[in-house]
């Protein structure tokens, strides 16, 4: 008891001193705050507040015309127990994310690694461009619509018929059997994104002397070199690439809508983002759409935590 009586004023005193120090520190860093102020203000308004608003709205019924009405967990319950299309969208999204995410990620790393071994800088730059071009060429993915066109003028149908493999045109984007595989190829085609560039930069910045040292220590082939030297020294880029891949592979929609239609046949290429756009911009059920957005966001964060744990083990 006595000790406590002594301890409390001491703690309070300690707290006061700490607060004072903090305040002093903050006053001293006035310039720093001025530097970050413009960005932080905009960020707050257009990124942080929207995400928090979205979480808040997800517990309401909101159709833009009337003020939002609190309805508790109803949106979430409806999503999982009364909305079959949502469940289908979840399944499709996971299928896309699980297949295109990891494959796209390792492909990007693998290609960057091979490009980095090219000695001629001009060829290296050209190869980087070749792999990065599909990602930056806007809506050039519509060309896949021509390749897999449902008439005989499409490349796939035309050539297959010429070869005699099929007798009539296949309805590529109308047949549920073909939609997903084709779209996965298209998504992979576009998966050399920001992460890929970051890998290339990371590989170029690995300290050369580490390779010499590794050779002395008995690194025998290029794969050992990759695992023991290269990857550990570009962990930051690996993590960054993972974040970018997760974000983009859970947000796939535009390509799908352009190629398979929106909504697609029997919702066979409907993703969570498609569902979100459907409710947010067509049906104007903002509360429901916000619940979808919030769920999506939570899943992305969870995935990132998971990948972070895995990446810590690289090179060990």
């Amino acid at each position: 008891m006595k000790e406590n009586q002594k301890l409390f004023p001491m703690l309070r005193e300690y707290g006061k001193i700490k607060a004072k120090l903090l305040w002093k520190n903050m006053k001293k860093s006035k310039t720093s705050y001025l530097f970050i102020a413009p960005y932080c203000l905009l960020f707050l308004l257009f990124y942080l507040v929207p995400v928090l608003t979205s979480m808040g709205l997800s517990f309401t019924y909101f159709n833009v015309l009337e003020p939002p009405r609190f309805i508790g967990w109803k949106n979430y319950i409806d999503l999982f127990f009364a909305d079959e299309i949502f469940l289908k969208a979840v399944k499709n999204t996971f299928l896309f994310a699980v297949i295109t995410g990891p494959i796209g990620y390792f492909l990007a790393l693998f290609i960057a690694w091979m490009i980095n071994d090219i000695k001629n800088t001009k060829i290296r730059a050209f190869m980087t461009l070749v792999f990065y071009a599909p990602t930056i060429s806007g809506q050039a993915y519509v060309v896949w619509k021509y390749i897999f066109s449902s008439d005989t003028y499409g490349l796939a149908n035309g050539w297959l018929m010429k070869l005699g493999a099929i007798f009539g045109p296949i309805l590529w984007f109308e047949d549920e059997k073909y939609i997903m595989p084709i779209l996965i190829v298209v998504v992979l085609w576009m998966s050399m994104g920001t992460g890929f560039l970051s890998f290339i930069a990371g590989l170029q910045n690995v300290d050369r002397s580490l390779y010499e040292a590794g050779y002395m220590d008995g690194v025998k082939n290029r794969f050992q070199e990759l695992w023991y030297i290269t990857l550990p020294s570009m962990k930051e880029q690996l993590m960054f690439g993972a974040v970018m891949t997760i974000t983009s592979s859970f947000a796939i929609h535009d390509q799908l809508a352009a190629l398979a239609g929106f909504p697609s046949v029997n919702y066979s290429a409907h993703t969570v983002v498609s569902h979100l756009i459907d409710y947010g911009t067509i049906r104007f059920e903002m509360g429901y759409a916000s619940a979808i957005a919030t769920l999506l966001f939570m899943v992305m964060i969870l995935c990132n935590k998971l990948v972070q744990l895995i990446l810590r083990r690289v090179g060990q």
Partner: peptide
């Protein structure tokens, strides 16, 4: 860093309201 995961679709609706 967390905001790297805010895809445009997640923020689109509230952004419209703002």
């Amino acid at each position: 860093v967390t905001a790297l995961m805010f895809s445009t679709q997640v923020t689109a609706i509230p952004n419209y309201l703002i």
